[in-house]
Simulated scan of single mutants.
Amino acid sequence: MTAPDNYAVFGHPISHSKSPRIHRLFAEQTAQNLSYVAEDVPADKFKASAEHFFQNGGKGLNCTVPLKELAWQYADCLTERARLGKAVNTLAKQSDGLILGDNTDGIGLVNDLTVNHHIELHASRILILGAGGATRGILAPILEHRPSQITIANRTLDKAETIVHEFADLGTLSSSDYPSLGHQLFDLIINATSASLSGQLPPLPPGLLAPNGCCYDLAYGNQPTAFVHWGIAQQARKSLDGLGMLVEQAAEAFYLWRGVRPETQEVIALLNEERGSPTPA
């Protein structure tokens, strides 16, 4: 039998990662002969580890916290969405030996929102919490759907203003600190901060969610995050975490590597079942 092609996810920490399971499920589903493992790689070891991986036959890497900006610097060439996001979560060795950097987070989020949960982005009012790399990674694919407005809120206003300036050519964007959000209403509120990982919330004023509005946390866990609970308390039509985004961005990386697009909904359903949470309608 032919030896499998080698793929991996690098991160620090990484033991919690569901990516090996997801890609093995994709490989079984699509009859692809590949190996996918998780490796704990701190930031100061990333470049040497990536070079070793690709020099020893590795075909593709996923990169998660805290390596996405380093992967962006490491890549020989970038997709447009990776260039704009200044972060890379997927590296792929090309036939000419060059390493392509891509960011599949944004399209993964958009697919989960629009395809899996039927949440309309076009002409919607969107609030994104946080002005870090996660926000940069999702903005361009969201803006392709032409929302009426995106507001980026952050504790440090100038960081939000910087992102608004960099993405201004792609759509209508504004910046805000949290207290100044005031009495605005939003159809979709996306938490792109890391607050949920420590059970915290950004300091949000009440009354931001429009009737029939939805909430989405990029973070995920075996239990609902603090932001998911906040959305439920705000009577969101749907208050979701990022497990679906995780699977969808993995599917986009898999397609980049293998040229085959796996079905995602059965994988999302399985992972939700394993964590004791029903697949949201």
Rank of each mutant, 00 (worst) to 15 (best):
I232K: 09
I232E: 09
I232V: 11
A233G: 12
A233Y: 00
A233K: 08
A233V: 07
Q234R: 13
Q234Y: 11
Q235I: 11
Q235C: 09
Q235G: 06
Q235A: 12
A236G: 11
A236Y: 06
A236Q: 04
A236N: 05
R237L: 10
R237P: 01
R237Y: 05
R237M: 01
R237E: 12
R237D: 12
R237W: 00
K238F: 00
K238H: 12
K238Q: 15
K238D: 08
K238N: 06
K238M: 13
K238I: 09
S239W: 12
S239Y: 12
S239H: 11
L240R: 07
L240D: 04
L240I: 03
D241I: 12
D241F: 07
D241S: 04
D241Q: 06
D241P: 09
G242F: 04
G242Q: 10
G242M: 11
L243W: 09
L243I: 10
L243N: 09
L243C: 12
L243G: 08
L243Q: 13
G244Y: 00
G244A: 05
G244H: 03
L246R: 10
L246E: 10
V247D: 02
V247L: 00
V247E: 07
V247Y: 01
V247F: 01
V247N: 01
E248N: 13
E248W: 01
E248P: 08
E248H: 14
Q249L: 03
Q249V: 05
Q249W: 03
Q249P: 03
A250V: 13
A250I: 09
A250D: 13
A251R: 04
A251P: 01
A251S: 01
E252M: 13
E252I: 04
E252H: 07
A253I: 02
A253P: 09
A253E: 05
F254Q: 02
F254Y: 10
F254A: 11
F254P: 02
F254I: 05
F254C: 10
F254D: 09
Y255K: 15
Y255V: 15
Y255W: 13
Y255E: 15
Y255Q: 15
L256K: 11
L256D: 14
L256N: 13
L256A: 13
L256R: 09
W257A: 08
W257D: 14
W257V: 02
R258S: 15
R258T: 15
R258E: 15
R258H: 15
G259M: 03
G259L: 04
G259Y: 05
G259S: 05
V260T: 14
R261Y: 14
R261T: 15
R261E: 14
R261L: 15
P262W: 08
P262S: 11
P262E: 05
P262Q: 08
P262H: 12
P262Y: 10
T264A: 02
T264R: 13
T264M: 07
T264G: 03
